[in-house]
Structure formats: structure tokens, C-alpha cells
Design a protein around this nucleic acid. Structure first.
Lengths: 236, 236
DNA sequence: GAGTTAAGGTCAATGGTGTTGGCATAAGGC
DNA sequence: GCCTTATGCCAACACCATTGACCTTAACTC
């Protein structure tokens, strides 16, 4: 009966596994993250995680109520890492650009976990702290509350949306990913100019661009638009 | 040997399955979409799809080179539906806004499918047509090629990224979704003003906003930024 | 129409997955 | 040192995608 999961704080007996390792929630989450990073998207499975820890796979169900609980724990760890060590400069545009890139980057560092967690509202302390920070930057910059909330919403969701999208691309199997990436050189670059004049005219530029993330550009455009809204408000 | 997949156009012999259905790529994709809508994202498997079609699961490998190929075909269908019946007005900003909303809407109509496919580059005809259309709008509007490609990339990926994010929220189980949605009224609205002044000050606005999609706002901001770039180019 | 070819269906098997119930053993409280 | 039970292990279950071998029959040729 692996139904009852004992919360980490209440854990008393720590019996080493057959191979000698002593398990803990921390150790499991960290090992899972390492496996994801090292062995790619297909790298994480309960069985593999078990053997990596030197434990029977079913043992993990004493720590998490299933694969879902494990991924949530991983996601929580990711959010925490996103803002570690950030400090404000006082310039709202600089600060938001940096924060956006950090969020995006933290998720991309663990694509498989990002795909699963980027869309969820956890309501946990570190997520709340991030929201408070972004809202504070906007309100301090002079955005009136309704405008601040609009921009905040667009900023946060855009960051998470691109994180999930770009993470999804990284999380594909090796073959799927290179197949997707080659499309811009193979299929698109060879389309007939009569039928697809615009693609044909920009084929070089497309091939050079489309395999990167569009997030930096989209982020700068969002910030530029916000800046001109702010200016309009102050002028009027 | 199920390695060779015959392209749909070259298909000559159509032998009915044991249960009498005559297969085709169209039929398979449509059945897959229906299964995704009805049974959720975990509801689609080769086996289930096979039985739903009255065919042996392995038969599907005569039509697609695996689950991946099927996913791409579904994505192609979705993007195709987005553009069905659209006509240009000639005003680039109006046209792009409408296209963006159509893409976003088409994916949200099939959230589970959108989650699977929004990140993929299919390189199939209808996707190519969509790309050609958007690029054409930008180049015709007067964006020089490098700028047109940048804006195109940001526009397309932003639309797909938000489609995937918003679809992900819709694709959650009922309980997870309402739990996520309630966060803004329960957790966030009750935070102490001393520790979270900005969230507390805007709690009402947040609760009203955060459960909608931020895509329309983000789209308008992107278009506004593009417009001012275009203006700057013509002025300089 | 008869003969030939191979497309496109089926069957059976492989090696993977998450998950669970039962068992045994040792950790920690007494 | 005893007793309880938490916790690790084992075996099994029900799925999954994918593949190779087989066989049926549609469609093409003469």
C-alpha cells in the first residue's frame, strides 16, 4: 500500500536503500533535475529515477503521490531559482527586461519540467514574491493601477508562454527537434518564388532567425509599447 | 515492415478494415481531434485511436510514421482551420490583429490538441500558407525585410505561445482549473498589505483580470510597437 | 477473365511506462 | 531488548508505442 505519503517534516526513520543511499525529498528532486538536464526529455521516468538513486522505483511513491506530485515539486524548485540573487536597478524598463530574461532562462534550463509547470498558478510564496516585485516596478514607475495590472498580466503571461513554447522545442526528442529545425533550411528555403514570393525573398533571413527564441524581441516590443503608453499618460 | 508510409495522394488501394471502415488521413486526424476533445489529452493513444476507427493499432503506421507524424498532421489541420475564410482588408494592423485572434481561437477550440502541437513546425502546405500570408502583410506594409522577419517571428511565436499557454489552462482537469482560478480571489486577495503592498492595492483589479487571456493585450502592444518602428523608419 | 504484384490490412511479440498490494526488515520509542 | 510500524523491496498489472512477419485482396497487365 503506497497510498499514504508521509510529509517530509514528519519523516523519522531513514532506512538506507539496498545500495546504501539515504533518500529524502530534496535528494530525489535534485536527482530528477540532474537526470532531465543530462539525459534529455525521455530521461526521466520513475524506473530510471529509482535506479539512479539506487532504490526500487516503487520506493518513490513513499515520497510523492505519483509522477504528478514529483513534477510539481520540481516546478516549485524552478520558480525559486528564477529570481535568486536578482537586485533592482531602479530603472523600470531595465529591471523588467532583466526579470523577463531570468524567468525565461530559469525555465529553459529545465525544459521538460517547464513544459509541465509553466501554465500553473501555484500561489506559493516565491511565485507571489515575483508577482509583487513586477507589480511594484510598474506602479513605482508611474503606471496607474488599471494600466499597471494590464501590463503586469501581459508581461507575466508572455514570459511564461514563451518559456513553455521554447522549452517545448527543447524538450522534443532529438530527432523531432532537428527535423523541426531543418524545416527552415530544407522546406521553406526551397519554395517556388512564384507561389510564395515573400518566403522566397526572405528565405535567408528566416533560416537565420527562426530557430532562435523570439522572446527577446517580443519582450522588447512589449516594453517599448508600455513605455509609450506611460509617456502618453504623462503628457495628457 | 511498417517503415514506408505512402503519401496520401499516392494512395490507390483502399481496403476496408475488418470492421468495415475505409481509412484515410483525413478520417484519422478528425477522429483523433474528436478523441482529444472528448477524453482529454491523455485520451489519445495509438491503441485507442485504432479501436475507435475499427482498425488494428498497427495499421495507423501505414498512414503516419509514428505518434509524432500524427501530431504534426493534427497541428497542420488546426492552423489550416485558423485561416479558412479569412480575407485581407489591406490595412496591415487590422489584418494582423484579426489573423492573430483567429490563430489563437482555432487552437483554443481544441485545447488538448493545441498543447501537443502548438510548438511544432510542420512544414506542411497550410502552415506555409499562413506564414506566407503574414510575411506578405508585413512586407507590403513597408517593413524592410530584416524588420519584417523579426516582427513576423515575434508575431507568430507569440500567437502560438499564448495559444499553448491558454489551451493548457483549459486542458487541465476541472478540479485543477478551478483551483488555479480561485487563487486570485483566495490567496492573492488576502495577502497582508504590509508585506505585499502592490498586490494588496490592486487585488480587485487582479481578480477581475487574471483569469482571462492576456493575449489580446499582448497582441495589441506588439502591433503598436511594430507601428512605431515602421513610423520611425519612414521618418528617418 | 487469369495472373501477378504489392498495398494495406492483421497478429503477435518486444521492451518500455506508471502504479499497487503484499511482504519483510530494521529503526526508533519505550 | 521488545514492539510497532515506517519504509524499502518484489512481483505483478495494465497500459503504452513500435515493429516484423504474415496474409488478403485490390488494381494493374496481358
Amino acid at each position: 500500500m503506497a497510498k499514504q505519503v508521509v510529509p517530509e517534516e514528519a519523516r523519522r526513520r531513514r532506512r538506507p536503500t539496498r545500495q546504501g543511499t539515504v533518500l529524502s525529498e530534496r535528494l530525489i528532486v535534485e536527482t530528477a533535475l540532474r537526470m532531465l538536464r543530462e539525459h534529455g526529455s525521455a530521461g526521466l521516468s520513475v524506473r530510471r529515477l529509482g535506479t539512479a538513486l539506487g532504490a526500487d522505483p516503487s520506493t518513490l511513491y513513499r515520497y510523492f503521490d505519483g509522477m504528478d506530485g514529483l513534477t510539481l515539486a520540481i516546478g516549485e524548485e524552478l520558480i525559486g531559482r528564477a529570481l535568486d540573487g536578482w537586485t533592482a536597478t531602479g530603472d523600470w524598463r531595465t529591471d523588467l527586461r532583466e526579470l523577463g530574461r531570468r524567468i525565461h532562462g530559469a525555465y529553459l534550463a529545465h525544459p521538460q519540467a517547464a513544459v509541465l509547470t509553466a501554465g500553473r498558478v501555484t500561489g506559493r510564496p516565491r511565485e507571489i514574491a515575483a508577482d509583487e516585485t513586477v507589480l511594484g516596478i510598474l506602479r513605482t514607475a508611474g503606471f496607474p493601477d488599471p494600466e499597471a495590472v494590464l501590463v503586469f498580466h501581459a508581461f507575466i503571461d508572455q514570459s511564461l508562454a514563451f518559456a513553455a513554447l521554447d522549452a517545448g522545442a527543447l524538450a522534443l526528442t532529438e530527432t523531432s527537434r532537428t527535423s523541426d529545425e531543418r524545416q527552415w533550411e530544407s522546406t521553406y528555403a526551397r519554395l517556388p518564388a512564384e507561389k510564395y514570393p515573400h518566403i522566397a525573398a526572405t528565405a535567408q533571413l528566416l533560416a537565420a532567425r527562426m530557430n532562435q527564441s523570439a522572446y527577446p524581441v517580443a519582450l522588447d516590443m512589449l516594453l517599448a509599447s508600455a513605455a509609450s503608453r506611460l509617456q502618453a499618460l504623462h503628457a495628457g
